[in-house]
């Protein structure tokens, strides 16, 4: 007797069914605000090249309520990307030094240290 198995179908909103799936989707969707910010930054560089008035216009636009809201959302997305990226980094590149595996927390910590160093460097560069 030939019997057939039942093949389950993946629901369209599979990512809403588990908290971890939702966190994964939010992590992936950070690419949208980040891409949007790069597009805006590119527009800003175009304004910079066009002249002082255009550059001021760009800065003013970013200071508007809409610009502020956009920047806040983007910053949250950027930070969430960084936090999740650093958490996963030790599993992507385990490090063996002197025959022993470097603890994942050290690798993660090194990333945060680098982030902080770059933050300070950029702040110093623009003389904030």
């Amino acid at each position: 007797m030939r019997t057939h198995s039942h093949t389950p179908r993946m629901p369209l909103f599979w990512w809403l069914r588990r908290a971890s799936y939702l966190r994964y989707m939010l992590r992936e969707l950070t690419c949208v605000p980040i891409a949007a910010w790069i597009v805006v930054a590119t527009a800003g560089l175009v304004d910079l090249v066009r002249g002082p008035a255009a550059w001021q216009g760009f800065l003013h636009g970013m200071a508007s309520p809409a610009g502020f809201t956009f920047q806040l959302i983007v910053l949250i997305a950027g930070v969430y990307h960084a936090v999740t990226w650093f958490a996963l980094a030790p599993r992507t590149m385990p490090l063996n030094l002197g025959g022993r595996q470097v603890p994942g927390s050290w690798i993660q910590g090194a990333h945060y240290a680098l982030l902080l160093a770059i933050l300070v460097a950029v702040f110093v560069l623009v003389e904030i």
């Binding site: 980040i34 950027g78 990307h81 960084a82 680098l114 770059i118 702040f123």
Partner: peptide, 8 residues
């Protein structure tokens, strides 16, 4: 993106 963009 993780290391530099947040600063910018």
């Amino acid at each position: 993106a993780a290391l530099v963009l947040p600063a910018l």
